[in-house]
């Protein structure tokens, strides 16, 4: 079909706008991370897109170097929150993926579990906040408050339905004949699962795990309620980056934000091949 030039122009305008809305804030953050205090505090006509005097001061600051200009010394550095975020998100993802895909496999192949899918959708339907107060009380009682493992456990539970539904769709789309072919050849169920099902599901597993990881990595509210001092995560720590003297420390926040963006990007690039395959899984003929 031939489209009119006006329509083509409009189409590209929409695409450019969509890209701009997505990327401009990220570019702004990246730029701000390298600006000295005078530049990131600037307003009005002094506002600059590119840092005039690029500096790593913001990064040095959040990792503990005191800043003379800010007259602020941080009570704690960003190192521990980064570790907390990594541990809680990675283990939360592992819990969600292990339990979620095992449940999805059982349900997809053996129709086990009855109403489990609906129950899991309900878990996803009501906001996690609705249950967080009881969870806080339980976690306090179990001494899981303010620990990365306590947080990882909650992350695992909250993102479990997500992992389950993604994986169930993928398992449903994998032809069961492939497993039956291996079974007929005399392999045990478990061996077939290890040698045939898992390798063939590598792409869907990788892409689902990435989605789940990003959900966990970007959580703020749960971490805010369940961690107080020792194991606060990046988003919670970031919110605390302000001082009574200068207000919000945007430069430091931007620097931390840039660091926080690294793991999902690395993971995304590492599994890019799988990501595309995972997103189109089932669209291709086997």
């Amino acid at each position: 079909m031939r489209r009119s030039p006006a329509f083509e122009l409009f189409r590209y305008a929409v695409i450019v706008l969509a890209i701009a809305i997505t990327l401009v804030p990220i570019a702004w953050m990246a730029s701000m991370a390298f600006k000295p205090i005078a530049e990131w505090q600037a307003t009005g006509n002094n506002l600059t897109w590119w840092p005039k005097n690029p500096t790593l001061d913001n990064f040095r600051f959040i990792f503990g170097e005191s800043s003379t200009e800010l007259i602020v010394a941080l009570e704690r550095t960003a190192a521990k929150p980064i570790l907390a975020s990594l541990l809680a998100s990675v283990f939360g993802t592992l819990i969600a993926m292990a339990a979620g895909s095992a449940a999805a496999y059982g349900l997809s192949r053996f129709k086990a579990g009855g109403n489990l899918p609906l129950a899991l959708i309900q878990l996803r339907l009501f906001p996690p906040m609705a249950v967080m107060i009881p969870v806080m009380i339980m976690w306090a009682f179990l001494k899981l408050n303010d620990t990365w493992w306590g947080l990882a456990l909650v992350y695992g539970i909250v993102t479990l339905p997500f992992a389950f539904w993604l994986m169930k769709t993928f398992f449903d789309e994998m032809p069961r004949e492939i497993e039956e072919a291996a079974l007929v050849e005399g392999c045990s169920r478990f061996r077939v699962f290890l040698k045939v099902t898992l390798p063939m599901m590598a792409a869907p597993l990788a892409s689902s795990a990435l989605f789940v990881f990003i959900l966990n990595w970007s959580d703020y509210l749960i971490a805010l309620l369940l961690t107080t001092r020792e194991w606060v995560t990046i988003p919670v720590y970031m919110a605390s980056l302000s001082s009574s003297m200068t207000g919000q420390l945007y430069g430091a926040k931007a620097a931390l934000g840039l660091i926080a963006a690294v793991p999902p990007i690395i993971a995304g690039i590492a599994i890019q091949k799988h990501l595309v395959r995972g997103l189109t899984f089932g669209a291709l003929k086997q």
Binding site: I178, V184, Q286
Partner: peptide
Amino acid sequence: MTRRGVGFVFQNYAIFTHMTVRQNLAY
């Protein structure tokens, strides 16, 4: 079915796509 020792060819081939042709044949 794992112990009936029959050969079975499926309509949609059910090839193990993560393996080479040799590995499929040797399975």
